[in-house]
Amino acid sequence: MENNTLQTSLTDLFNITTTGTHQVLEFKKGINNVIVFDPGANHTSFCKSSISRIDGKTGQLFYGSTPIEEKIGETDFEGLAFQLITQLDNDPSGELQFSKGMHQYFVLDAGIQAVLQHLPASIHPMDFLLVGVTALSGIEEKYIPGNEDPLVQAQFIIAQLFVIAAYYYQLQHNITWNSSTSAQPVYHRFLQQVSPEKADLYAPLFNIILMLHAEHGQNCSTATVRNIASAGGDIYTAIASGIAAFKGRLHGGASQYVSQMYNEIIQRGISASEFIAEKMGRREVIYGFGHRIYKNWDPRARIMYNMLQSDDPVYVSVDVIRRLAFELTDRVSNDTYFTSRFIFPNPDLFNNVFYTLFGMPSSMNTVMLSLSRVAGWIAHYYENQSDRLPIIRPQELYK
């Protein structure tokens, strides 16, 4: 009887539909006296999106309707950014024009340089990135005067993020900015600024890593970008807010803690099994494992794991942490304590190997991830604008 009563009340309140593997409860018009208490918003959708889709049960990530595995090889990061923002999967000429347009904005502006070089040397690189992105609104008119094309704005922002990140690295390592032009993609030009002698070698790997992290649905930072967009905030403020959220240790900032884990294991000279046993004994978090959505391997982690299995000599310089990543993976993946709880390696376990290979300090791990995710943030900002969604205004329960 209770179930029947509940079902009746639900149908009075909601239109109930099924989408994929989910039942969707959509409030009927005129219902304004009901509040849903959903801490963390794990069961609440405040938008509809065609940008990406995650199937956590099977461990799949789709950009649009295409599995991420198929995207790699079809295009590069710049082309993928175009696809995510425009939601066009088959427009090679559009991708080419987008990439060409982006290249002209890979320039260190004197005004931005003046702002950034006066920041404290001890500033966290994510805060450096945040300041730089916020300041871009002040020079937009100089580079794209009278712009009303979202794609041009996207080109400018993505290119400038790579510039700002490279400039941070140069300030920390006393490297002078190379102002020569190049027809290479922005990710290649980033490497030319920070590691010119290895740029050609690392660029193909960096491209794949960027593509893996370009978009990942309504996570904390993306939802934050949409929140700002819903208020009518400009795109620079929205992207800066995404960066601020992404820095958190429970979000993109977790990557830095994986680096600390690697360093601790190596410095103490213990095995992966010993380290995990200690962590389990103290009931402490083991960074680099587990994901709220995936109940199987995260496809991004599996792709990087497979890449690192190669005997390519490019990995020789990071062989110690590469082998440690494999040992940690084997230890967790073969333990029913973890597998029964759907705890598998997540991308941070392997990101660190690649970022170390590229010569990045661990403090820049989240910056490197942001260079990827900016494509998704921009896509969600403009999708939110085009859908004309109302300002996000959650309810609260007084306690």
Rank of each mutant, 00 (worst) to 15 (best):
E2S: 06
T11I: 13
D12N: 15
I16R: 09
T17H: 13
T18R: 12
T19Q: 14
H22D: 13
G30P: 06
G30L: 11
I31D: 05
V36K: 11
S45C: 02
S45M: 11
C47Y: 12
I51W: 12
G59Y: 02
Q60M: 06
L61E: 12
Y63S: 10
S65I: 15
G73I: 14
E74C: 04
F77H: 14
A81C: 15
Q83S: 11
D89M: 11
D91P: 07
D91F: 09
S93R: 15
L96C: 08
S99V: 11
K100T: 14
H103P: 00
Y105M: 03
V107K: 15
G111L: 07
H118F: 09
L129Q: 12
L130F: 07
V133E: 06
I139G: 00
I139F: 02
L151I: 10
Q160H: 09
L161M: 04
F162C: 07
I164G: 10
I164C: 08
Y167G: 04
Q172N: 07
H173L: 00
Q184Y: 02
Y187C: 01
Y187N: 07
R189Y: 01
V194K: 14
E197N: 08
K198D: 15
A199R: 11
D200F: 01
L201M: 13
Y202I: 13
Y202T: 14
L212S: 11
G217I: 13
T224M: 12
V225F: 03
N227K: 11
A229M: 05
S230P: 09
G233I: 10
D234L: 05
I235S: 09
A245C: 10
F246G: 06
K247H: 11
G248S: 12
V258T: 06
V258N: 07
S259G: 05
Q260C: 02
Y262A: 05
E264G: 02
E264F: 04
E264M: 07
I265L: 08
I265C: 07
R268I: 02
I270N: 07
S271H: 10
E274C: 00
F275Y: 15
F275K: 12
I276R: 10
K279D: 03
M280Y: 11
G281A: 13
R282H: 13
I286G: 03
R292V: 01
K295H: 05
K295T: 03
D298Y: 01
D298Q: 03
R300Q: 09
R302E: 14
I303C: 04
N306A: 09
L308Y: 07
V314S: 12
Y315D: 08
S317I: 09
V320N: 13
R323A: 06
T329R: 09
Y337D: 05
R341C: 00
I343A: 01
I343T: 08
N346G: 01
F358M: 14
M360T: 10
S363M: 03
M364F: 14
N365G: 01
V367C: 15
M368N: 12
R373F: 01
E383A: 09
N384H: 14
I391D: 05
I392N: 06
Q395A: 14
